[in-house]
Design a binder for these strands. Structure first.
Lengths: 222, 222
DNA sequence: CGTGAGCTTGAATTGATTCAATTGGAGTGG
DNA sequence: CCACTCCAATTGAATCAATTCAAGCTCACG
């Protein structure tokens, strides 16, 4: 009983980490390997080639476990805050399944593998327009804005960010955003994404809902 | 003591699954979720878009855990044998960390996420030539053929397969293989890949060894 | 042998990039 | 309140990488 209370207190005492846009996130130190649970803001996992080309391989939004890749060993990438960030550290040991706990880190990571695979499909076989539409669908779903008919969500991404996530150039992104807007599929203005008809956007993106990992409840409670 | 022996016997009694080239692998039934450890042959995780476009998001070779994605839930992809296959089932429970066991499935999956990210970078930001070179480097390393200077490995992939893994067309793959061969970087003939100078190929591919998951020892012992 | 899948080659086309300005908007300081 | 700056967004033109379409070719296998 005392131990349980102590643990609870320790959790309540968890100190949030705050970062400004542009700063880099790194695995918090402390006993054992640690990850972050993103509370507020957006972050991106960035990879840079020797000649400067950049690719974003994952976007993190509030509620996401960040960064699963830190569990694999020496990171060869950076995680950059795209907006002001607030995050709380969580030890790997707290994420392991134990006793009655539903802490299914394995399922979470497997879902991440699936999510990464769907980006692979997008980058490998979809047209530029489909890729951007796919990205928007993915984000709407993950932000929990996909159940209503008229949908919108914040989109604190520059054209450069979108380009680096979709493997395009910022100029081409700009042209395609104009196309999407003209077709009434999606409109981006002032860091806000509006999608009048999600199903139609999903169809043009050939987007599959099953590819997006649903967030496990236990993560929100740590 | 008796329990340990029984477990050992059960493991020895594990019945290998054999499949011919072209057949589809599926998660073996039985108590609990099960995966396969590939013993012989090659397989590919394939995704198909509604209009027929195909993307390969992972290649599996002997020793690989196949398919981690089965742990995530309803699979929305297929795993196809590219050659004749031999594989043994393994229960998820056997892969969980327990007591003294080093069965670190979490680390394994995290490494898979990293591996997927490196494909994302490849597809998103590398040229067609770099992508193919990247694929070859990746395979050489995973097949354990990367430590010598003159290297070669079996390559039971058609141009179509390579194209679907790299997001290109078979015709373009053909032209680039000719280029690679002409540049003395890699030669493919009769289902065999030969690389005279791995370091040079890795450099043109901007390939990073750290992106390739090293196979944990315990997997070979199940 | 004959046959067909996979490989090879060429020419025309397209989707996306690159380069080069120009415009717009938010923030700063006078 | 207005100039000034800076960065992001927009637009156009030229170029390029990769695709598409269309033949042939080769060779492993029945």
């Amino acid at each position: 009983m005392e131990t349980a209370t102590a643990t609870l207190d320790a959790r309540r005492a968890r100190i949030p980490i705050a970062l400004a846009a542009g700063e880099a996130l790194s695995p918090p130190g402390g006993a054992g390997r640690q990850l972050l649970v993103l509370r507020k803001g957006w972050a991106a996992r960035c990879h840079r080639l020797s000649d400067g080309r950049r690719q974003i391989s994952a976007l993190f939004v509030a509620g996401d476990l960040c960064d699963p890749l830190w569990l694999a060993g020496t990171p060869h990438h950076t995680v950059e805050a795209l907006t002001a960030i607030e995050a709380v550290p969580i030890a790997e040991s707290e994420l392991q399944p134990r006793g009655e706990g539903p802490a299914d880190l394995v399922r979470e990571l497997a879902a991440d593998v699936g999510h990464a695979a769907s980006w692979t499909v997008s980058l490998g076989r979809k047209s530029a327009l489909e890729r951007i539409a796919h990205l928007f669908c993915d984000l709407l779903v993950r932000l929990g804005r996909s159940t209503a008919v008229g949908r919108s969500c914040p989109l604190p991404l520059s054209h450069d960010d979108i380009a680096d996530a979709t493997g395009l150039t910022a100029q081409h992104v700009q042209r395609l955003l104009a196309d999407l807007s003209g077709a009434g599929l999606a409109r981006v203005a002032r860091h806000k994404l509006s999608v009048p008809d999600f199903a139609r956007l999903a169809r043009t993106a050939r987007f599959d809902l099953a590819d997006v990992p649903r967030r496990p409840d236990w993560l929100a409670r740590v």
